[in-house]
């Protein structure tokens, strides 16, 4: 569940963010903040982002710290279960993707591709609180 993701991330947040020295780039926040997304686009973007984290982030986030690695894999497992539920919404056409959400997600991918894979993955992982704050914010 999202609460498990939140508590797992809180336990390793300082460690993960300390591994990201780049202040001038954010994967999720710039140039357009997630918080500016229309509520009608929320489901689609959430679905895209969960695929993004499962497919492009977690697998590239190995560290030398076993505790941190265990927390990352438990977060990844929680993402997989939430993604499954989002997948059902998508298949039942309750998760429509408009032009704005597609553009928004393409911007996130562009930010991601500006860095090498490991740096981009670690930065994305360090921004999980941005994703969770946005998801839990009332529409």
């Amino acid at each position: 569940s999202v609460a498990e993701i939140r508590s797992g991330f809180t336990a390793i947040k300082a460690n993960i963010q300390a591994r990201d020295p780049i202040r001038t780039l954010s994967i999720l926040s710039y140039p357009h903040s997630l918080h500016k997304v229309k509520s009608s686009d929320r489901c689609c973007i959430t679905h895209h982002l969960f695929n993004f984290y499962v497919d492009k982030v977690f697998k590239h986030c190995k560290t030398e710290d076993l505790y941190v690695n265990r927390k990352i894999s438990s977060i990844a497992n929680s993402f997989l279960s939430v993604r499954r539920r989002l997948q059902q919404c998508h298949e039942q056409n309750q998760c429509m993707c408009g032009q704005e959400s597609t553009e928004k997600f393409n911007q996130i991918l562009a930010n991601y591709e500006r860095l090498n894979v490991t740096s981009a993955a670690m930065k994305s992982l360090g921004e999980l609180d941005i994703l969770l704050n946005w998801m839990e914010k009332s529409p």
């Binding site: 780049i22 202040r23 001038t24 780039l25 954010s26 926040s29 710039y30």
Partner: peptide, 8 residues
């Protein structure tokens, strides 16, 4: 101080 993602 700086805003994360802006960095200035």
């Amino acid at each position: 101080y700086s805003v994360y993602g802006v960095g200035k």
